[in-house]
Simulated assay, not measured.
Amino acid sequence: MEPRYKVKRKIHVELTGVEGARRTSKASPEGHDVYDTLEKRNLPGQYETLSDAEAHCELLNRESNKLPLDDQSRALLNEIRALNTDQFDREIFVGLTREESERYVALSVATRHKSLEEQDEYLSLDEKYNNERMQVIGAEHLLRTENPPIH
C-alpha cells in the first residue's frame, strides 16, 4: 500500500527580467515539500534537507495509520488487547478490518442517535471484535500457565 504522505523535491524556478537598466533575478528556494496523496496537495512548509522531509513524512504516515481515538481510550484499549495492526501497519480493532474499525469507532460515539440499522451494525461489529479479543486473551493466558516465569 502506498503511504499517504510523500516527499517531493521542490521545483527550482528562477525568473529574470529587466527593470530600467538593471537586470533582476528572483529564484524560488530549493528544498523539499511533503505531498498529501489523499488530498492531492503539498502541505504548507518546506524542508531544506531530504532527511528532514523524510522524517516528517514518516511521522505523518505513522499518525495517519492510527484510528481516531484519544490517548486515554487508546491506552485502555491496548491494555484490554482490543487493538492490533493490519498488514499495512494501520491500527485496527482485533478481528475487524480497517474499514470495519473506522466504522466501529464512528458508531461508538455516544452523542449521536443511531438508527436501528446502525445499532444492529454496531452490535455485529462489537460481537465480532470481542469474540476475537477473547481468543487473544485466552491464548495469552494459556501461554502464561504452560510456561510460568521462574523466580
Rank of each mutant, 00 (worst) to 15 (best):
Q135C: 06
H141A: 09
A106Y: 09
G138C: 06
L143I: 06
L116E: 14
H141V: 05
M134F: 09
L96M: 02
G138N: 12
E127W: 02
V136F: 01
Y104D: 05
L83Q: 10
A139V: 06
R133Q: 15
N130Y: 08
L142W: 13
K114G: 05
A110G: 07
A139N: 10
R103M: 06
L83F: 15
E117T: 10
L123E: 10
N84D: 15
R98H: 08
N84Y: 14
E121C: 11
T85Q: 14
D126R: 01
E140L: 11
R144G: 03
T111C: 02
E132P: 00
Y122P: 03
Q87C: 11
K114W: 14
E118M: 12
R90K: 13
L142Q: 12
N131C: 08
L76E: 07
E127V: 08
E100K: 00
A82Y: 13
F93K: 06
N130R: 15
E121A: 12
R90N: 15
L83A: 10
R98D: 01
K128C: 00
D126P: 00
E140R: 08
Q119I: 10
L125V: 03
S124E: 10
T111R: 05
D89N: 15
G95H: 03
V136G: 06
R98N: 02
E132K: 04
R98K: 05
G95C: 02
I137N: 04
Q135M: 10
V105E: 08
N130Q: 13
E102Y: 00
T97Q: 01
E102W: 00
F93L: 05
T111P: 00
Q87W: 11
L125H: 04
H113M: 11
L107Q: 06
A110S: 09
R133T: 12
L125E: 03
S124N: 09
F88W: 15
L116P: 05
E132L: 02
D126Y: 05
R81T: 09
E102N: 04
G138E: 10
K128D: 00
D86N: 15
N84P: 03
L77A: 07
S115A: 10
L123P: 00
E127R: 12
F93H: 07
E100L: 00
A110V: 09
L143R: 13
E91R: 02
H141R: 02
E102V: 01
R133S: 07
Y104H: 07
T85C: 11
V136R: 07
Q87V: 13
L83W: 13
T111Y: 04
R112K: 08
S108Q: 03
E100D: 05
E79R: 11
R112V: 08
E117M: 03
A139R: 09
A106G: 03
Q119F: 06
F93I: 04
G138Q: 10
R133I: 09
D126L: 02
T85S: 12
Q135I: 08
H141P: 00
E99R: 00
